[in-house]
Design a protein around this nucleic acid. Structure first.
Length: 413
RNA sequence: CGGGGUGUGGCGCAGUUGGUAGCGCGCACCGUUCGGGACGGUGAGGCCGUCCGUUCAAAUCGGAUCACCCCGACCA
């Protein structure tokens, strides 16, 4: 991407109505635009980050055997009445609206009901099971109070996967695999060290559900971390019974504030009962499909990554999600052609480059390269061009080396 | 939803005892600059969130309302 062709600009000052670090940095850097409280537009650079996060999740879901789909945001009333969740007293985050003919509609806050209904059309035999459809979608939740930039929005991205299994045993096996896949996602995002599988309240079909909680001051949850076992207990189930279950004593745990970055839940037959999702088993008998749900919020993760990977100069994206690998700074007139060639060469090699070809002074380019948080900066300047050297700087630690073109290309391979 | 705070050019802010808006950044043009957000000059851009009221006169006073932020409650 040539910066001269990018319509967004950076801001020196963050908007005063944003106090969360993630929103301030992402808005200053031109990654997102605030539409209203808890509702943000993803601009070109921000969209790249969001898509990179989604792609990591997608790869892990596909590895689990997931089938990606894209469901609708508009929801009809009848589907939700079957489970009782159309009622505002049961589900209090609905955005509801009406068709021109007066019939009621809702904007989906989650998708258990419509997906269960959808799967009725395709599941009729044990041979159709297990199946794991999933999607990335914008969810709408009429939160009483949105907060902290991307961390809690009224419109946000979610990956939701649902498992449809023949029975409890088959479900439990998948549930474990899904848990491992989630751990891999956080590992790849660079959050592995501070993310804990956390015991949380379950439902009718399981004593616990599991959350993935990332330790962070911006978190809304309190968890009790057992560092040795790499697990945590959500404060909502922090009691003697649970401690006994897990064979843990209070003095082994440390209280921490954390962000819920994922949640896996055994639904059992709650929704297959409500919507009558059955299959014929090997003996020709009818049985209920056993379900689970597995959610991750890519937009919340983007906010958390911005919070966690940043310093006084701006963002510091992990390579896995950065909008580009290299920020190419060109200084002077003589070296312009060399920089153009290097840009083309790197792009041809499959290296994502943000080329700062703007008519700006070096200081502005350096400052923006840091604000945007691109992992590596390559400087091509008149000063170095006669020696055919390129300056290579890592955003994470600021270390700079002078490299030849060959060394540079090898380094970025 | 309870409590607190804030609304003035794209962003950050100032505006005194009411007299019809100003600064910095950014933007446009000219010149000088050019390795850490340059300098000088010229210029564009705002009916001061909205509505009602008080007044000869309202960004400023009163009321209502909307929006945004923070704390709390809430969070399949």
């Amino acid at each position: 991407m040539r910066l001269s062709k990018n319509f967004t600009h950076t801001l020196r000052d963050a908007p005063a109505d944003e106090t969360s670090r993630n929103a301030q940095l992402l808005i200053r850097a031109g990654f997102i635009y605030k539409e209203m409280a808890g509702v943000y537009t993803y601009l070109p650079l921000g969209l790249r980050v969001l898509e990179n996060i989604k792609q990591i999740i997608r790869e892990e879901m596909d590895a689990l055997g997931g089938n990606e789909i894209a469901m609708t945001a508009l929801q009809n009333k009848e589907t939700w009445q079957a489970s009782g969740r159309w009622n505002d007293d049961v589900m209090d985050v609905w955005f509801k609206t009406k068709l021109a003919n007066g019939s009621e509609l809702g904007l989906a806050p989650t998708h258990e009901e419509p997906l269960t209904k959808l799967m009725k059309q395709f599941i009729s035999s044990y041979k159709d099971l297990p199946m794991y459809p999933y999607q990335f979608q914008i969810k709408f939740r009429n939160e009483l109070r949105s907060k902290s930039g991307l961390m809690r929005g009224r419109e946000f991205w979610m990956k939701d996967l649902y498992s449809f299994s023949r029975n409890r045993a088959e479900h439990d096996e998948f549930y474990e695999k899904a848990s491992e896949a989630y751990a891999k996602v956080y590992e790849r995002l660079g959050l592995g060290d501070i993310t804990y599988k956390t015991f949380a309240s379950g439902g009718s079909f399981s004593k616990y559900s599991h959350e993935f909680q990332t330790i962070s001051d911006v978190g809304e949850d309190i968890v009790y971390v057992h560092e040795g076992r790499r697990i945590a207990i959500n404060e909502e189930v922090y009691n003697d019974e649970v401690l006994a279950d897990l064979g843990i004593t209070r003095d082994e745990l440390v209280e921490k504030r954390a962000v819920e970055v994922g949640n896996i839940f055994t639904l059992g037959t709650k929704f297959s009962d409500a919507l009558d999702l059955n299959y014929t088993d090997e003996d020709g008998k009818q049985a209920k499909v056993f379900m689970g749900s597995y959610g991750i919020g890519p937009s919340r993760l983007m906010g958390l990554l911005a919070e966690h990977f940043s310093d006084d100069k701006g963002l510091v994206w992990p390579e896995a999600v950065a909008p580009a690998k290299v920020y190419l700074v060109q200084i002077g007139k003589k070296s312009l052609g060399v920089a153009d060639e290097l840009y083309e060469k790197l792009m041809t090699n499959g290296v994502e480059v943000i080329y700062d070809d703007r008519d700006e002074r070096p200081g502005a380019k350096f400052a923006d390269s840091e604000l945007l948080g691109i992992p590596y900066r390559v400087t091509v300047s008149d000063r170095l061009i006669d020696d055919k050297k390129y300056e290579f700087t890592a955003r994470s630690n600021g270390e700079t080396e002078l490299l030849t073109e060959q060394e540079l290309i090898a380094r970025l391979d």
